[in-house]
Write a protein that binds this DNA or RNA. Structure first.
Lengths: 195, 195
DNA sequence: ACCTTTTCTTGACACGTGTAAAGATCTGCA
DNA sequence: TGCAGATCTTTACACGTGTCAAGAAAAGGT
């Protein structure tokens, strides 16, 4: 957990404050702002999380566990009908995306300048893609995938079309309601991939 | 052009160097790096472009004009058959996207912290959406749009699905070849939108 | 050649991230 | 109680963006 010999209490307090503040103000929140809110020094945060990217990554991973994204996804992966399986998996993921949106956006922004943040995010995306690959494989092996798709391309397509970036464009930039965005993304991905 | 009483020669030299350096190293290029390459002081760049976001925006706008994106798009908009029209417009746009990708990515990154960059980019995206809206309108009025789509939603969907962000995910993150990415995006957008 | 205006440079500052080292404080335990 | 180690603070620095003001240098006209 990258906090060699650090207080678990302070650790959690930082995460709690940071989550709330970033949800409200995004990239405008400085490390000093978060430190002040917790009542500690700026450097204490660096001792706990290394960099801003490290803090954001810890927030994402905590959310992963709290919302049981992995468990819910694999439960959806059990759905029998291919079409319903794709729909169920996308429902799970698209329910999770808005929850981590502010933190994930800032993390994506930092990837350009923070190699550690970049590696950690890529690692997590690699996991997500392995789940989506299983989904694509199951669709393929049951003959549900439209003929022109390979498993790899289908995986990448789902990954892209249901990404944080796409969600941000529709919901934040274009003010789509969350339900509407989720519905259209699920329907359009199904239409593109399935026979 | 935001360069009240500044040398046009220096202005162009900055743009030339910045374009090349950002194409190669993206966000790693500092304003000082660019200044050194041109042989001027860091502050001279700020006198010409205000901020890093201003410089990037000037690069994007110069590319808009050089590659005649607007003209080419409206020429494609003249295509008679609805399906071919959508395809032609997407071809034009998706040919342009990779050209501005490095600069656009950095600009998108800066939006979170630079209000001017944010406003300028949003302004440009507003133009693009007005073009896409005309495309969506023409498809709608000729009955080519699948029944569930409104003009506004179709516009936003095309805008999102053919965005710089989506291109980046497929081509940069997932190493898709440009042709393959363009083809799949064109085909999938057509499949989703058209009857 | 001279003077003026335009253009660019220099140096300084505020604020952000990230790193390092030294000192203070708090905690558990003998 | 008092020590030792863990934890946090303080101070300082390097580098980035962005802004400001004073001055040098180049360009132009007369």
């Amino acid at each position: 957990m990258s906090r060699k010999g650090r207080s678990a209490k302070t650790h959690e307090e930082i995460l709690d404050s940071a989550w709330d503040m970033i949800a409200e103000q995004g990239a405008d929140v400085s490390m000093l702002d978060i430190a002040k809110a917790v009542g500690i020094s700026r450097q204490a945060i660096y001792l706990h999380f290394g960099t801003r990217g490290g803090l954001l990554m810890a927030l994402v991973k905590r959310a992963d566990e709290r919302y049981r994204i992995r468990e819910d996804f694999f439960e959806a992966l059990d759905t029998r009908s291919p079409a319903e399986r794709l729909d169920a998996c996308l429902r799970v993921w698209l329910t999770f995306v808005p929850k981590i949106l502010p933190v994930a956006k800032d993390l994506i922004r930092l990837r350009a300048t923070d190699p550690d943040a970049s590696a950690a995010w890529e690692d997590r995306m690699s996991d997500l893609r392995s789940w989506l690959r299983q989904l694509a494989e199951s669709l393929y092996s049951e003959g549900a995938l439209a003929s022109s798709w390979t498993i790899e391309e289908a995986t990448d397509y789902i990954w892209t079309a249901s990404s944080v970036q796409v969600w941000d464009l529709l919901v934040v930039e274009r003010n789509w309601k969350q339900d509407r965005a989720a519905t259209i993304l699920r329907e359009s991905i199904s239409k593109v991939l399935l026979k």
